[in-house]
Amino acid sequence: MKVTLNRLNDDFHFEAKGASNVVVHIDSKVNEEVHGASPMELLLMAVGGCNAIDIVSILKKQRQQITSYAIEVEGKRKEVRQAKPFEAIHVTVFLEGDIDEAKAKRAAQLSFEKYCSVSITLEGAVEVTYDVYVNDRKV
């Protein structure tokens, strides 16, 4: 897998592309005018996106009817020398529809523990936890 980044201004605005050729804008919050997500925001988005794709895929295969899917990903950071890496990431999944709660819980478990390459990449370095809500009820 390979991505490319090209600088677009005199500051920190970059355009990134991977094999899909989809453009992602990356920037730093140092300036008032921000043109993209920060690398740390992108990492949280990657965790959420990877798990979202897995969970939806698993539930669709089980013929569960998802009418709404939302996810919140929150990272807790620590100070290490001059850096501030994540020490913990918590994901909250919100599902609505005609969905069996046990199937939703199992889909999340499979995603976080077996299928999601992003979450598994972080194992040992960052504690990743999750909660699942189906129709506003925690399962």
Rank of each mutant, 00 (worst) to 15 (best):
T67P: 12
E79L: 14
E96A: 14
H13V: 14
N31P: 06
Y133G: 05
H90M: 06
D54S: 02
R77T: 01
K84H: 12
Q64G: 08
Y115R: 03
V56E: 10
G124N: 13
L44H: 02
T67W: 13
S111H: 07
Y130Q: 09
F86T: 06
N21Q: 07
E127L: 15
E33S: 15
D54Q: 00
D11A: 15
Y133C: 07
Q82D: 08
E87A: 04
D136W: 08
N135P: 12
N51Y: 00
F14N: 08
V73Q: 02
I120C: 10
V56C: 09
P85F: 11
L42D: 07
E33H: 14
S28Y: 07
N21C: 00
Q109G: 11
E113W: 00
A102S: 13
E87L: 07
S57L: 04
D131V: 11
K138Q: 08
G75W: 05
V132I: 15
D98L: 12
E96Q: 13
H13N: 10
R7M: 09
E96R: 09
P85S: 10
R106W: 01
D98W: 10
P39Q: 01
Q64P: 15
V132Y: 09
S20H: 01
K60S: 09
Q82K: 12
V80T: 10
V80M: 08
Q109S: 15
V93M: 02
E33V: 13
R63L: 15
I53G: 04
S38H: 05
D131F: 10
C50T: 06
S38R: 11
C116H: 05
A46N: 08
N6K: 15
L122A: 12
E32D: 14
E113D: 00
S119C: 09
L8H: 09
L59Q: 14
H35E: 13
V47M: 03
V24P: 01
I99S: 15
M45S: 10
S57E: 06
A83P: 04
P85I: 12
D27G: 05
S28I: 07
I66K: 07
M1H: 08
K61C: 06
E113T: 01
K138G: 03
Q65C: 11
A107P: 12
A108Q: 06
E123H: 14
G75M: 04
V34F: 08
L44C: 00
S28P: 08
Q65Y: 07
V34A: 06
V3E: 02
L110D: 03
S20G: 03
F12W: 13
K60T: 12
E32A: 09
A37C: 01
K103Q: 15
L5R: 02
A102W: 11
Y69G: 03
A108Y: 07
A107Y: 06
E113F: 01
R63P: 09
Y130K: 11
G48C: 07
G36V: 10
S28W: 07
S111F: 02
K2H: 07
E74S: 03
A16Y: 00
K60A: 12
M40C: 03
V23T: 04
A107F: 11
V126N: 08
M40E: 03
T4V: 04
V23N: 05
N31C: 05
A83M: 14
V56I: 15
G49V: 09
A102L: 14
R77K: 06
A88L: 00
P39M: 00
F12L: 14
I53M: 11
D27T: 02
F112Y: 11
N9H: 13
G18H: 00
